[in-house]
Amino acid sequence: MNDDIEAVGTDLPRSIDEILDSDFDGLLDAPAKAAKVTSAHRLERAFLEIIEFRRVHGRIPSSTTREIAERKLGARLDGILANDEKIAALMPIDELGLLATPEPPASIDDLLGGDHADLLDDESGLLDVSDLPVRRQVYDSGNAARREKAADFEQFEPLFKQKHAELRDGASRLLPYPGMAHIVPGAFFVLNGVMLLVADVGETEYKKTTVRENKRERLRCIFENGTESSMYRQSLAIRLSDEDGQIVVQSEAPEILTDDEASGYIYVLRSLSDDPQIGTIKDLHKIGFTRGAVANRIKNAEKSATYLMAAVEVVATYRTYNLKVSTLEHLLHRVFAEARLDITQSDHKGRAYDPSEWFVVPRSVIDQAIELIISGDIVDYVYDRAAQRLVGPD
């Protein structure tokens, strides 16, 4: 019995190496370690499922279908297409071109021709516009008013500076735009923070319609930024009304009413003549009246005997309302008759002339006379040349 035990014991392995060597079936082998699955591998595997769906069904999976499995693949594809990095990583295995960006159609015909799903098919006729009236084509006639650089802006620039100075000093003020009747030559307005001058009003144009005959006038509007426009009077009126425009008026002038009629401007000029007979006369001023812009009136002063054949400087302008021209001229001539310039000059052709409307009167007295003219009290005053003042009733 003991011999049998000893015999069996001699067949047992005596060390761990003998145990391992005797494991012919690999029962004692350690299991192979699974390879680590990376995010790139998961992305590739997910995309391969989409490719397989496309291969089996002949179309890409939809992300809006009710089939949960397909919807999942469709959403996955949408996410890939929205990520440039994922597209770049999957391009090498995109054998079906699912990630390629389609070329845009070159024309509307190409777009309609590529509508394989008939998405643009209009069986209801909703897109048929053949029975609709043809839209009238509007062509630019070249007469539309546009801003352009004012070629003679240097003639108007001093007027803008004067108005700004009057506003600062309180001599002028801004009032709400009172109506189209006040859009006359020489009027100053403020539109969107920019001052403009109505330099001139063109001839009245008549346009007949099926209802009435409309009249309109082109304006020459000079803006203080050096540009000008030839818009119609009605167009300026609409803009001033809609955009809270303002009019520039004298502070001492009565409130302008919408039914007041703008008469024009009284202007005061100083001669820039280099003639010793003229240049040495102190307080020599021309007092005149114009319905239009003063700048236009004095444009060619050096060629006119009225302006002593020399350029002039605008000293002041005064806006008048509801005033007859003949009455104004009569009052000016009567009040300053004793101070009228008494001199004979010759023009460029040697012809003699006696200038009118030039008076040797201090500026302060002229200002006082203008106030009295506007108020209507001037009829009771005369100018005392010796005292250099206006003398009224006791």
Rank of each mutant, 00 (worst) to 15 (best):
V37T: 14
I51V: 11
R136L: 14
E123M: 03
I60N: 14
H41R: 10
D11Y: 10
L126W: 02
T64E: 15
P105C: 00
K33R: 15
G9C: 06
P31C: 02
L127M: 08
G142V: 04
R76N: 10
R54Y: 15
T38I: 08
L96F: 04
D84Y: 06
L28E: 06
A69T: 12
D128T: 09
D110H: 14
I80M: 05
P105Q: 06
A32L: 07
V138D: 02
I50E: 01
I16W: 09
E103F: 09
D140Y: 02
R55E: 11
H116P: 12
I87E: 06
G58A: 06
I108F: 12
D118C: 14
S107T: 13
S39L: 11
R71T: 13
R146D: 00
T64P: 00
K86S: 12
I68S: 11
I60L: 13
A89E: 15
A89N: 08
L43S: 00
I16T: 13
V134Q: 14
E70I: 15
K86H: 13
L73Y: 04
K72H: 08
R136I: 15
E49I: 02
P13V: 09
P92N: 04
P61S: 01
G26D: 07
P104W: 02
A32K: 03
A100C: 05
P133A: 11
P104D: 00
P104I: 01
G58D: 08
I19H: 06
L73E: 02
E103R: 08
H41L: 10
H41G: 13
A88G: 10
G74S: 09
R147I: 05
